[in-house]
């Protein structure tokens, strides 16, 4: 796969140009962000396969984390059940998105555009924009988990989620049905698939994954912050789309690449980290990410056109 090769090359370049890049400390923080970005990417990926999208990933992530933070800090719920609560709450918000999309019958773009605003507004109103920064040590320690001295626990966690998603979409009837409905809704419907249900399930999964990403971010920050995904959760959007799109998941639905999404997220994190290390200036990173997204989709398109040409010539 080209993406994997590109990553190796990038790592090699960054490591030679700047020795600091390969330091255990940098690798630790790199893999930590990488894990989080992967889960954010997965969260978008599972709705992209339905041919829809979820602009509310950031809002759901933050809202769910605030629920988790409140449970842990205010209600004294133990860490694991509180995390489960947060994920369930995220899935519930996603379920609402799915239901609205199916019931109103408009594209999920407009539904999630509305709910990103609603979820975030409600969260701010309810929390009065205050953060939970006295979270239990057991939770905060999750962010410090470290293997072999340089791999953050976040990365294996994200990879395990990835394996689960791969199995779900390739080896279960529901997963296959979601893909079929995403590729061609009417054909799937006429083949006896309950297509509405596939859409709702995908959105609920997306919400759950967004919540998980939120929890990982909160563990890293050591606090549940209303501002951690930017204004109405917008700052998650770029990583959320970058990872699956770079990884070859089609926006039109029906085709998924879990491995690609993981690699896409890895590449984004490495480039961001490398650029910051190179003192390019944090201010220019966003522009580079935009250029990379543009280059990636254009190249992908070009490849498709070339493949088509070759087939016709034969």
């Amino acid at each position: 796969m080209g993406l994997a090769l590109l990553i190796v090359v990038l790592v090699a370049i960054f490591a030679t140009v700047n020795p600091g890049f390969a330091s255990p400390f940098n690798l630790f923080s790199l893999t930590r962000v990488m894990g989080i970005d992967m889960v954010i990417g997965f969260s978008m990926m599972v709705v992209l396969v339905t041919g829809g999208l979820n602009l509310a990933v950031g809002s759901i992530g933050v809202a769910a984390v605030m629920v988790g933070g409140w449970a842990m800090q205010v209600q004294g719920v133990p860490v694991l059940p509180a995390m489960a609560m947060a994920v369930a709450f995220g899935a519930f918000l996603g379920w609402i998105n799915g239901q609205l999309t199916v019931r109103i019958g408009v594209h999920s773009f407009i539904v999630t555009l509305a709910t990103m605003s609603i979820f975030f507004g409600a969260m701010i109103v309810l929390t009065k924009a205050e953060s939970f920064n006295a979270l239990p040590g057991a939770f905060v320690d999750l962010g410090r988990l470290r293997y072999w001295g340089f791999v953050s626990g976040m990365l294996p966690a994200a990879l395990i989620v990835g394996v689960g998603l791969w199995l779900f979409f390739n080896r279960t009837s529901l997963g296959r049905e979601i893909l079929a409905a995403g590729a061609n809704l009417e054909a799937a419907r006429l083949s006896g698939i309950r297509v509405e249900r596939t859409i709702v399930v995908a959105h609920a999964m997306s919400g759950g994954l967004a919540a998980l990403a939120g929890l990982m971010l909160a563990a890293r920050n050591g606090a549940a912050l209303p501002s951690m995904a930017g204004h109405i959760g917008m700052s998650w959007l770029l990583p959320a789309f970058l990872a699956p799109v770079l990884g070859g998941t089609l926006l039109t639905g029906g085709v998924i690449s879990v491995v690609g999404t993981a690699l896409g997220a890895a590449m984004v994190t490495i480039i961001t980290n490398g650029l910051l290390q190179l003192q390019v200036g944090e201010f220019w990173v966003q522009m580079f990410l935009g250029l990379i997204l543009l280059a990636a989709v254009l190249l992908d398109r070009l490849r498709g056109v070339m493949a088509e040409r070759r087939r016709q010539v034969r």
């Binding site: 279960t172 009837s173 296959r176 049905e177 893909l179 079929a180 590729a183 061609n184 009417e186 054909a187 799937a188 006429l190 083949s191 006896g192 698939i193 089609l250 029906g254 085709v255």
Partner: peptide, 23 residues
């Protein structure tokens, strides 16, 4: 538009009606 899922393979297109039963 309604009969086939052109971007999926032959096995998926035929199997789509029986996944539930086979699972």
């Amino acid at each position: 538009a309604e009969g086939l899922i052109l971007i999926h393979d032959v096995a998926s297109n035929i199997g789509v009606t029986i996944w539930r039963r086979l699972a």
